Simulated scan of single mutants.
Amino acid sequence: MSTKAMVNEFAKMRHLRVWLLTLILAVLAIGIGLYGSTMLGPDFDPASDDAWNSVLSASGFTLAGPLLLAVIASRQVDIEHQGNGWLMSATSGVTSGGLCRAKLFSLGIMVTIATIAVSGALLSVGLLFGVTAPIPGGRWIGFTACIIVVNLVLLALHIVVSTRIENQLVGIGIGLLGTVLALFGNEIPAWMAHLTPWGYYALSTAAEYQDGVLVGLTPSYASVLALGAVATTVFILFTGRLDRQEV
């Protein structure tokens, strides 16, 4: 991957204020999660052994992620359509496929940092609320890693969509649909959640209600890993095909 292409992508992000969209993603993920969490309810007991389950269930990526990731990818790709950037990159030796890979890598760094920041912020909130039970470190790290993978897969998906379809409203519409699918991910059978990338937010869950009781869960690591592998393969094939096409 061209270092120059990476530097250019970060420069574009600064110009397009993509960093601000990423910050909004993180803030909304925390705000939405806390608003819907039992942590703010009168029944929350920070001394309970299950208190961390309330914190783990407070991630709002399910609602904030699908649409904002679509907007972030769309904004970063649309500038190439508007300014004939594909041709300009080709003349400087960067293929369209290489440009897409640079976009995913640069945006992926931002999204990964935001996801880790949200995870760390929720952990800090739990400590501020006085949770005294031992932190479920393994489950916490696993949950964070799964959310990172799902976020990156959706980011790659929207880069592909935004590259192939110049009308960016299509990608935004897919993001809106994804929000609905992610929202109901916990309400449908697990096999159905496997059918769309947005359903993997539910499969990454580390705590959910079962029979009215909030319990800890082990994220579906194998499923999320398989999603990441399939998405990586498809993205490599897609960008490889772009490498062989004339602009």
Rank of each mutant, 00 (worst) to 15 (best):
M1D: 05
M1I: 07
M1F: 13
S2C: 03
S2Y: 10
S2E: 07
T3K: 12
T3I: 10
K4S: 14
K4E: 10
K4V: 13
A5V: 04
A5D: 03
A5L: 05
A5P: 06
M6H: 09
V7Q: 05
V7N: 04
V7S: 04
V7I: 15
V7D: 01
V7C: 02
N8K: 08
E9F: 00
E9I: 06
E9N: 08
E9S: 11
F10E: 05
A11W: 07
A11K: 14
A11L: 15
A11I: 14
K12N: 03
K12P: 00
K12S: 03
K12L: 03
M13V: 02
M13G: 09
R14A: 14
R14W: 09
R14H: 14
H15Y: 09
H15N: 10
H15D: 06
L16S: 02
L16F: 01
R17Q: 12
R17G: 03
R17H: 09
V18T: 11
V18M: 01
W19R: 06
W19V: 14
W19Y: 15
W19K: 02
W19C: 07
L20I: 15
L20G: 00
L20D: 05
L20S: 11
L21C: 03
T22D: 14
T22R: 13
I24F: 05
I24V: 15
I24P: 02
I24L: 15
I24T: 13
L25A: 08
A26V: 12
A26W: 09
A26Y: 10
A26H: 11
V27T: 10
V27M: 12
V27Y: 03
V27I: 15
L28M: 13
A29C: 13
A29M: 10
I30Y: 04
I30K: 02
G31N: 01
G31Q: 01
I32Q: 07
I32R: 05
I32C: 06
G33R: 08
G33V: 08
G33I: 12
G33K: 09
L34E: 03
Y35V: 09
Y35Q: 07
Y35L: 13
G36I: 00
G36E: 00
G36S: 00
T38Q: 14
M39L: 15
M39E: 05
L40V: 12
G41C: 01
G41S: 15
G41Q: 14
G41F: 11
G41T: 15
P42H: 08
P42K: 11
D43N: 10
D43G: 07
F44T: 06
F44I: 09
D45I: 13
D45W: 12
P46D: 06
S48I: 03
S48Y: 00
S48V: 03
